[in-house]
Simulated assay, not measured.
Amino acid sequence: MVRRLGELESTIMDRMWATNAPASVRDVLEHLQRERTIAYTTVMTVMDKLHTKGLLKREPVGRAYVYETVSSKEAYTAEVMRDSLSRSGNRAATLVHFLERLTPEEANALDAALQVYPPKGRRS
Rank of each mutant, 00 (worst) to 15 (best):
E7F: 03
E7M: 00
L8E: 01
E9M: 05
M13K: 02
D14M: 00
D14I: 04
R15E: 09
R15T: 06
R15G: 01
M16R: 09
A18S: 04
A23C: 04
A23I: 02
S24N: 01
S24L: 01
V25F: 01
R26I: 07
D27L: 00
D27K: 05
V28W: 04
L29S: 04
H31R: 12
Q33T: 06
E35G: 11
R36C: 05
T37H: 13
I38N: 05
A39P: 02
M47G: 07
K49H: 04
H51K: 09
K53D: 11
K53P: 04
G54Q: 02
G54C: 05
G54H: 00
R58G: 07
R58V: 09
P60S: 14
Y65M: 01
Y67I: 05
E68Y: 12
T69A: 00
V70C: 05
K73Q: 09
E74C: 08
Y76F: 09
A78H: 00
E79V: 01
V80I: 09
D83I: 00
R87P: 08
S88N: 10
S88M: 11
G89Y: 12
N90V: 03
A93F: 09
T94A: 15
V96L: 15
H97C: 11
F98S: 13
P104N: 15
A107Y: 10
A109I: 03
L110S: 09
A112T: 14
L114Q: 13
Q115I: 13
P118M: 10
P118Y: 10
R122Y: 15
R122K: 14
R123Y: 12
R123E: 15
R123C: 12
S124L: 13
S124M: 11
S124W: 12
